[in-house]
Design a protein around this nucleic acid. Structure first.
Lengths: 168, 168
DNA sequence: TAAGATTGACTCTTCAATCTTC
DNA sequence: GAAGATTGAAGAGTCAATCTTA
């Protein structure tokens, strides 16, 4: 991946072009959407570089944390997908990998013969905590945004998610 | 992909858990990072659904717009990757697809025998404009954030990008 | 030797089809 | 028939290796 630093903001440039081509109305929104895409890309790259030494991807880390936080350390696969907003196939794949690594295991769901429970193992709990310490130090702790700004942006993005139908 | 609406904010819930597990310090940053990931996912899904009927992905759309805005309608592949912050292999792939669709073509770079120029075709220009009208209407025009909020969030994200070394 | 671009192997995600159980 | 989960195939991105030219 190319990581050359540009001498100007490429999204600011796109914004100018957008307006110059008669799309003034939506130039600001375009710039915001493009920014979100780019920031996500930057943050994801950092997250994966923290997680890689542990053999985890961000998707698998999210699953692991969800199970760590769950009341019994176990959830039906369907619930996992619902909470993380990913498809059933992705959940199956993530659990496969986590299971191979001994971090979770599959169990029958006593209350639904069709369903499968994913359960975090002691090794999974231990790793989740250790990895989170790293994530807090290297990613979340170095955002370079003030407390006030962080909260402010979070709230606007929460509005976006809510209106998009993510939750009610 | 599962798209069930939850009765609560899953990221708010994660924030609470984070604090409850002794990671209070970084709970806000975690919530922000997770929000950006989720919003990106939502916006990307919307963008791809607008673009799919035209046979485009978001990555290819970005390439097409970059060429549309370029002074001569042509750029070296390396420049494309630099501006969009994607790797050389991704650019090669994107240009391959766009070329197959007759939207761009490859030319020799007269000023560098190693390099290849990607040039947007008349069909490419026409499609780019048509698709952008759709994107403006269906995606950028329906963000549901006020002008003021849009600008405010954009500026904070620009700070993030800048500090991350995206540009100077 | 380094830079631009391409290729092939690998990973992850998604979609459609399938199987089992409700 | 519908829901939970799995499987295999297709699409896209990344990484390492390679080829050509500066």
């Amino acid at each position: 991946m190319k990581r050359t630093e540009l001498p100007f903001d490429p999204i600011g440039e796109a914004h100018r072009q957008w307006a110059a081509h008669g799309w003034e109305e939506s130039a600001d929104a375009m710039a915001l959407v493009t920014s979100i895409m780019r920031v996500q890309q930057i943050l994801m790259a950092r997250a994966e570089s923290v997680l890689k030494p542990f053999g985890l991807t961000f998707a698998r880390y999210e699953v692991l944390m969800l199970l760590l936080f769950s009341r019994r350390g176990a959830l039906p696969l369907g619930k996992v997908g619902e909470r993380l907003q990913v498809g059933a196939a992705s959940v199956t794949n993530a659990i496969d990998r986590l299971e191979s690594a001994g971090l979770v295991l599959r169990r029958e769901n006593p209350s639904d013969g069709r369903g499968v429970l994913s359960q975090i193992t002691p090794a999974g709990r231990k790793l989740a905590k250790r990895v989170t310490d790293e994530m807090n130090a290297d990613l979340f702790g170095s955002l370079e945004l003030s407390q006030k700004e962080t909260t402010l942006v979070f709230e606007r993005l929460r509005d976006l998610r809510s209106r998009a139908g993510d939750f009610s």
